[in-house]
Each structure stands twice: as structure tokens, then as C-alpha cells.
Design a protein around this nucleic acid. Structure first.
Lengths: 145, 145
DNA sequence: CTTGACCCTGTACCCTGGTACAGGGTGTAA
DNA sequence: TTACACCCTGTACCAGGGTACAGGGTCAAG
């Protein structure tokens, strides 16, 4: 199992920089499966999955801190189930708000494309017209400092 | 129309920092409606909308550069319709990929919550189990440097 | 007419998320 | 046995997106 590969191969497979993988390791986000005698980091398919997830989640506007939280979500003997459930529900809500916002944006873009096809010039920015909702895209309570 | 207000009120209404609003102005993302004789910036409801959009789009992982592009998308006398259409379609595709990724994440969270309710401990991180897809969340062709 | 809250410009600083060396070891194919 | 691609640690640097003064004007209430 867990086809071993070095950091370079992993990075290439997922499409990130080698340095970035090491950076994630410093942040305890993604460690190697094991080390070779030479000291080379070794990664398996699970690590690849994880790295891919991190990459995608980043593109969705999650911070590395949030990604850590997401990846740590699991019901273990140590974690109280109700805690996990609550966290998961919070995250879920946040994700749903994001989906809605993106869907509104998608609709706006679609209607713009429609207008294009019909050859109707749109004067004011049509993106805004459809996105007037005040609903805020929540990104984790800003608990900095 | 366009209830005038100063930068402080605008910032508070939308929930961003005053400095941030001025920062956006430097980047030509959001200018004041007008200036008072005193030099105070004045904003109307359109600016508020725009600021709100910027804030939400940021939380969705769009860069300020991308947000500028989105806000500039409109069919004007100057912009060739086909160009706008193409850009809009590109953005739309990008948005749809994001939506899909978020929905996969939402599902993962839901099944985690289910497992919680059922009192079944999930050993390995269940988020990953559902997010094995290799599909990449595209964020604008990385044309840096 | 003063005091407190707010605004102005300008410049400096900060955090997050990377990237890039420098200096040195590893591994493998010719 | 060497040459080349790759790996290691450590440290420094960078861009994006803000945030925080400093030094000074504005305005409205008391």
C-alpha cells in the first residue's frame, strides 16, 4: 500500500512547490509517512490526498488554520462527540453560506452572458445588481491577537 | 438618493476597517462618491454594495485583482461583447468548480455529523474520505512574474 | 470656544502563505 | 568515480492584504 515517493514526486503530482510541502510540515499540516535512512521524506497516497485537499481548500478561501481544523475533525476516543458535532455544524454553515454566495455570483455571470448573446449592452456593472444581499460570508470568528 | 455618509460610517456598516477602505481606494477598487469641501470622502449606497461584494468575494478566495476583473465585467460601448462574454464564461467555470468543491465538503461535514449522532467513532479523518477527487479548484492562471 | 469624535495624508509595520538561496549530503546511471 | 538530479536544514526574502501610527484639520455638542 501507500506507494512511497519522495517530496519532489509528491509535489509534482499534486502541483505544488516542494518548499510549500516542507512549509506545511512546519505548520504540522502534513508530515511524511516516514523517513528513509538517508533522511529523505517519504509520502504515501494518504499524504497525497491530504495535500490535494489543502490545495483545494486554500483556493476556496480557507486559511491554513481553518484547514487544520477541518482535517482534525473526527470522532476519536479523545474527542467528545458533541464537540466534534458542534464544530462540524459550524463549519457546515460557513460552507453553505459560501456556496450560496458563489451561486449568486454564478447567476450574475450567467445573466451577463445572456445579455451578451442578446447584444444588449449592460451599463452599470451587472454583477452588483444581482449581489445586493447583505448576507455575509462568514470566515471564522476573527480571533487574532 | 445615495444616502451620503463618511468613511467611518460606511466601514462600520459593512464591517471592515476604515484603513481597508482607503487601501481599496489606492488600488482603484472603490472610490468615494464625492468629496465634501472639507476633503472628507462621501459614499452612497452603491459604494456600500460594492464594498460588501468585495468583502464577500475575498472570503470566497478571490484575489483583489480578480475582484477588480469581476466588477469591471460589463458590456459597454468600449468593451467588445465577445470579449466580455468570454471572460464571463471563464469566471463562471471557475465559480462552478468552486461550488462543486464546497458541496463535496458540505457533504463530508454532513456525514460526519451523522456519524456523530449515531455515536459511531470515525477513526481516520472523514473529510478526506469524501474528498478524494483530483479535480483542482482553479484560481486564475497564475501569471505572476 | 473648547473638547471629543471623526477625517485627512503619508509612511511604516505586520501576518499569512509562500519562495529562494546557501551549503552540504544522496543515489544512480554512464 | 563522476556527474547530475534530487534531497536535507536553515535562514532570508517576497507579495498580498491589511493595520497602525504621526501630525494635523473638521465638526458638532455643550
Amino acid at each position: 500500500m501507500a506507494a512511497e515517493r519522495t517530496i519532489g514526486r509528491l509535489a509534482k503530482a499534486v502541483g505544488v512547490n516542494v518548499q510549500t510541502v516542507r512549509y506545511y510540515e512546519r505548520l504540522h499540516l502534513l508530515g511524511p509517512y516516514a523517513r528513509a535512512l538517508s533522511g529523505y521524506r517519504l509520502y504515501g497516497s494518504e499524504e497525497e490526498q491530504r495535500l490535494r485537499f489543502i490545495k483545494n481548500a486554500r483556493a476556496l478561501g480557507f486559511t491554513l488554520r481553518e484547514i487544520t481544523d477541518l482535517l482534525d475533525l473526527r470522532v476519536s476516543s479523545r474527542a467528545r462527540c458533541s464537540d466534534v458535532q458542534q464544530k462540524a455544524e459550524e463549519k457546515l454553515q460557513c460552507v453553505e453560506v459560501k456556496v450560496q454566495a458563489l451561486e449568486a455570483l454564478a447567476q450574475a455571470l450567467e445573466s451577463l452572458i445572456q445579455a451578451c448573446r442578446a447584444g444588449q449592452p449592460t451599463d452599470r456593472c451587472p454583477i452588483l445588481k444581482r449581489l445586493e444581499k447583505k448576507a455575509e460570508v462568514q470566515v471564522e470568528s476573527r480571533t487574532r491577537r
